[in-house]
Amino acid sequence: MCGIIGYTGPRQAIGILLKGLENLEYRGYDSAGVSILNNVEGIRTFRSAGKLENLKKLISAEGENSSQEGSSGVGHTRWATHGAPTEQNAHPHSDCTGDLTVVHNGIVENFSEIKEALKKSGHVFASETDSETIPHLIESLLLETKSIDEAVRNAALRIRGANAIVVISKSEPGKILAVRLGNAGGITIGYGEGEMYVASDLSALIEH
């Protein structure tokens, strides 16, 4: 079980994501991470092994700067299944280009098959996780369609198992794509004034 949160709207995302992860840490404390979509620098990702406090220290040590700014982003707290509880295996995971980022809860039952096919077509993987196959699969499907929505839908059709997936893309700032496959533990959508949230459960959104 893992915890997922996403935000897009007029406010700075990083504080909202970290606060949401505090309320989701009971779902996993092996590692944590956030990705922020910055209109100037693209997607910036921060990840750390261990409890959420380690991620907060990592971000704080860097000091506030423009690369942490952005009004869209995703966050994740992990309970390790495939792959050790390391920074390398922490979410979010990206494709080869770094233009799209994914957080994931569940198990991709056919990830070995998908991963081998993607490696043969030139994709390079940075982790041991089943989750990392998802952004690479979406990237490969974007060669067939320029629509991120369609690529995510097509990826969902190829994945087996119960999975909750949230995607942000540099090509579609201000948009979060969420998919639930099977009994994946829930996706909760929150609507605000000119802003939207997605999370594993209501505890991450209740104060908004």
Rank of each mutant, 00 (worst) to 15 (best):
residue 147 S to Q: 05
residue 188 T to Y: 04
residue 53 E to K: 15
residue 11 R to D: 09
residue 128 E to F: 03
residue 113 E to A: 07
residue 37 L to A: 13
residue 14 I to W: 12
residue 111 F to H: 00
residue 115 K to W: 01
residue 185 G to L: 09
residue 174 G to E: 05
residue 58 L to I: 06
residue 52 L to Q: 12
residue 9 G to L: 13
residue 27 R to E: 05
residue 36 I to G: 09
residue 72 S to Y: 05
residue 133 T to F: 00
residue 125 F to C: 04
residue 130 D to Q: 04
residue 142 L to F: 12
residue 19 K to I: 11
residue 105 N to V: 05
residue 195 E to W: 04
residue 106 G to I: 00
residue 153 R to Q: 15
residue 204 A to V: 13
residue 164 A to C: 10
residue 198 V to A: 08
residue 187 I to F: 05
residue 206 I to H: 08
residue 136 H to T: 04
residue 47 R to W: 14
residue 84 A to C: 10
residue 172 E to Q: 01
residue 32 A to T: 10
residue 20 G to L: 02
residue 25 E to C: 11
residue 128 E to L: 07
residue 61 A to V: 10
residue 195 E to P: 07
residue 47 R to E: 13
residue 177 L to S: 07
residue 125 F to H: 03
residue 171 S to K: 15
residue 73 G to Y: 09
residue 40 V to K: 12
residue 103 V to W: 02
residue 158 R to F: 08
residue 145 T to I: 07
residue 199 A to I: 09
residue 126 A to S: 14
residue 171 S to G: 11
residue 112 S to V: 10
residue 66 S to D: 13
residue 98 G to F: 04
residue 36 I to N: 06
residue 170 K to H: 15
residue 196 M to V: 14
residue 107 I to N: 00
residue 149 D to E: 12
residue 125 F to K: 02
residue 17 L to W: 11
residue 79 W to F: 03
residue 46 F to P: 05
residue 194 G to R: 08
residue 102 V to I: 14
residue 77 T to H: 06
residue 124 V to W: 10
residue 148 I to T: 13
residue 188 T to F: 06
residue 40 V to P: 07
residue 144 E to Q: 15
residue 16 I to P: 06
residue 24 L to F: 03
residue 131 S to C: 05
residue 12 Q to S: 14
residue 145 T to Q: 12
residue 160 R to F: 00
residue 48 S to W: 07
residue 13 A to E: 08
residue 89 N to G: 00
residue 105 N to K: 01
residue 35 S to C: 02
residue 73 G to I: 07
residue 91 H to A: 14
residue 192 G to D: 08
residue 203 S to G: 12
residue 192 G to M: 11
residue 105 N to Q: 10
residue 125 F to M: 03
residue 22 E to W: 08
residue 63 G to S: 00
residue 116 E to T: 10
residue 166 V to G: 10
